[in-house]
Amino acid sequence: MRWLPPHRPRRATAPAPPADAPADPFALLLDRDEIVLAEPRGRRVLRGRRVLVTGACGTVGGALCRRIWRLGPAALCLVDRDARGLERLARELSAEPGGDRVTLAEADVRDAERIDGVIVDARPELVFHAAGLYRLPEVEDDPCLGVSRNVLGTRYVVDGAVRHGVRRLVLVSSDRAAEPTSVLGATMRLGELLLQTATGGPTCFAAVRVGDVIGAPRAPLGPLGPLAHRIAAGEVITITHPEAARHVMTVTEAAGLLIEAAALAEEAETFALDLGRPLPVLDLVQRYAAQLRSPAVTIRFSGLGPGEKLAEKAFADSERRIRTAHPKIWGTRPVPPPAGLPRLLDELAEAAGAGDEAGVRLLLRRLLPEYRPARRPLPACGVRHE
Rank of each mutant, 00 (worst) to 15 (best):
A74D: 13
A56I: 03
A16T: 14
R8H: 11
V297G: 05
A131W: 07
D33C: 02
F271T: 02
A311S: 15
I237H: 09
L86I: 12
Q286N: 02
K309R: 15
A63E: 14
L46Q: 03
G99D: 09
H247W: 02
G153S: 07
A316K: 11
T154V: 13
I237E: 10
T187C: 14
L310E: 12
K328S: 14
A352V: 02
T332A: 15
P17I: 13
V166F: 07
A316T: 06
R135Q: 13
I329Y: 06
R44N: 08
L257R: 10
V281R: 03
H164P: 01
R176F: 00
L78G: 12
S182M: 05
R149Y: 06
A186C: 07
R384I: 12
P280S: 01
R101G: 04
R49K: 15
V127C: 07
L368S: 09
L362G: 02
L364P: 04
L367C: 03
A232I: 03
E243V: 00
D31Y: 01
E386Q: 08
T298S: 14
T240G: 11
L136H: 02
E39P: 00
V208C: 11
A19N: 01
R365D: 02
G85N: 10
A255S: 10
A27M: 08
C65S: 12
P73L: 10
L93G: 12
G98Q: 13
C57S: 10
C77M: 08
E267Q: 14
L273S: 04
R84V: 13
P137T: 06
C381I: 12
P6K: 00
G48W: 01
T181I: 00
P217S: 11
P143K: 12
P223Y: 01
A27W: 03
P342A: 12
G185F: 03
A198V: 06
A83C: 08
M1S: 13
D317H: 12
V120T: 12
A186D: 09
R88I: 00
R163M: 01
T250D: 05
V157I: 12
R246E: 14
G58R: 05
L30P: 09
H229W: 10
S294Q: 14
E260T: 04
D274H: 13
L348C: 05
V172G: 02
E370Y: 01
V208F: 05
V170H: 05
V158L: 11
V158S: 04
P217N: 11
W69N: 05
L348G: 07
T252F: 00
